[in-house]
Amino acid sequence: MEVLGIILAGVLINNFVFMQYLGLCPFLGVSKDLNMATGMSGAVIFVITVASTVTAALEQYVLKPLELEYLRTIVYILVIASFVQLVEIFMKKTLPGLYQALGIYLPLITTNCAVLGAAMLNVTKSYGVVLSTLSGFAGAVGWSLAIIIFAGIRERWKLMDIPATLDGFPLALISTGLMSLAFLGFSGLFANLVK
């Protein structure tokens, strides 16, 4: 049941974009077209899931036994940055097709605060390695859901007559706000499952 709770919380109830304000820069930046949003989602799901596993393992087996928790921020960000670099090099060599599709988004992910945010949230909830991986994955899926819905909405703007003062960021933020209002409706659901 805890597993179900983590998945529901990650995807809907504590959605990264709408409820926790994580990963807003790429959310607003790469949501102009649906294909790009899908590509970015793939990259984000992959990186957040693996980064959650690695950081949770580091926390449990290195930082905690050595009492180095105060170095968490530095260690995590270095691990995430080098991991993203590694994935980039590895994919360029072995999976050129996938690299072509995701390549341009990978460097952007280092500064996506959702990656470090997911790792930090796992620590505050003191999940183990397995649950951290799951929670990271669920959060990333929630982020992808948000950006894909939003890209679909943004594509329709092209057909609409938008007032010049609202064009661009203002309308994007207000639309996000309205979507977030809809997601606010999920809060409190399954209260016995989600902590």
Partner: peptide, 25 residues
Amino acid sequence: AVMLTPPGGFITLGALMALLNIAVA
């Protein structure tokens, strides 16, 4: 109280940016 929740934040910033656009225009 909705202004203190996430939707309130998005809408406040969106409205501020729109006002700024009007002023600049």
